[in-house]
Design a protein around this nucleic acid. Sequence first.
DNA 1: TTCATAGTTCGATGCTAGTCGAAGCATTGA
DNA 2: TCAATGCTTCGACTAGCATCGAACTATGAA
Lengths: 226, 226
Amino acid sequence: MKEGPDIARVAALLGDPARANMLTALMGGKALTATELAQEAGVTPQTASSHLAKLEAGQIVIPRKQGRHRYFTLSGPDIVEALEVMMGIANRVGHNRVRTGPKDPELRRARVCYDHLAGDMGVALFDGLSKRKLIKTDLNGVALTDAGVDFGNGFGIDLAALRQNRRPLCRECLDWSARQSHLAGSFGAALLDRFYDLGWARRMSESRIVRFSVDGEQKFRELVGD
Amino acid sequence: MKEGPDIARVAALLGDPARANMLTALMGGKALTATELAQEAGVTPQTASSHLAKLEAGQIVIPRKQGRHRYFTLSGPDIVEALEVMMGIANRVGHNRVRTGPKDPELRRARVCYDHLAGDMGVALFDGLSKRKLIKTDLNGVALTDAGVDFGNGFGIDLAALRQNRRPLCRECLDWSARQSHLAGSFGAALLDRFYDLGWARRMSESRIVRFSVDGEQKFRELVGD
DNA sequence: TTCATAGTTCGATGCTAGTCGAAGCATTGA
DNA sequence: TCAATGCTTCGACTAGCATCGAACTATGAA
């Protein structure tokens, strides 16, 4: 190939299993150390180090030095978007991982995936909104229905503002614990924010766990029509 | 890696330069034969055949047999989306190709890129809309401004309908001939459709060339504020 | 039938990239 | 100063994969 890489270079960086595992781990939004990423990817620290060097050189991740740790984060929302789209493709064509997800039951139940709700409750949210016909899925993906727009506005979400953003309102994100879809996109993120604001749930510090209050979970169940 | 591939498998398929070239060629929306794709990728037919077999096995492309030709198309809009996102990333981090694009001057000037306008006129459209402040670019990408919404509706585009779709309204797509951005997304596609409807331009059959009428080009120039 | 074209399969080659063990820095804490 | 921890560099091994020449199949045309 005389012509340089371009897409191929980016895709190749995401195309190694170890690196892909690291990047999906980083989708949680939390900065992780090199050692943590090595564990996530299931490789030795040496190997991880070489992968991280490549990802850094390709500007897929950015490192931040703190004491004797190096914390890594994704270099931008476009990386998350790329990972989400490819998860969708992998899901569509049936390339599914054997991996069943985290062991921690709280993590399996409700956690943050980048900026939206994942885990069993994330899946329940997606299914509930579908059943109530507030979102609909077709060949192209997920979209808000008219009823969904009314619902969103009534729930305190400024849909007009969200639409200003390029980011799609709704997107399917494959849940790596439940292996079903949950709701991503700016609307998915806004919903989680409202859950926080309404006091239904709060994010545990230093972790991806989202913990619902008893009252909040009750309200959540009503919302998803349980 | 004990855990299976998932994203990595998809990304790896897009991560080879020859395959990436083929796929970008297919973004034009036109079905291409194996030989044409071999030329696009700059490899021998044998090599192309092996790549196409992989892409087919990974369900990235779908083949259609016709006479003694095999025509390939992308397996879905999500593939286009993935390619677009990765083009955006490659552009952001400065992984640009040396390749300067097609030689045919008509192709360089105005052509279809999947379903929107590319080439010099595509770039002019993007720049013109930016200059008139109908679209704005920020960290997250491109979005319609309020003025842009008014413009779109006035130009005969049903923005409300477009928003029903999950596909982002606006997206930057890196132009491989001009090496600058042109406007993709559902709004970009709708604009090109309007150009057709208004008789400003028409798509040449069996080619990606978009040919503007004299009058149409005049109107187009006014539109982009030249 | 004969020839030309489109495409694939096979086999050989050569290169790249992922992997890890061992050793080397660097930072922190005692 | 010494030890422990986090991370990287070096070197060696291996496997996989892209690549192409050559031969083969299939479709279509003369």
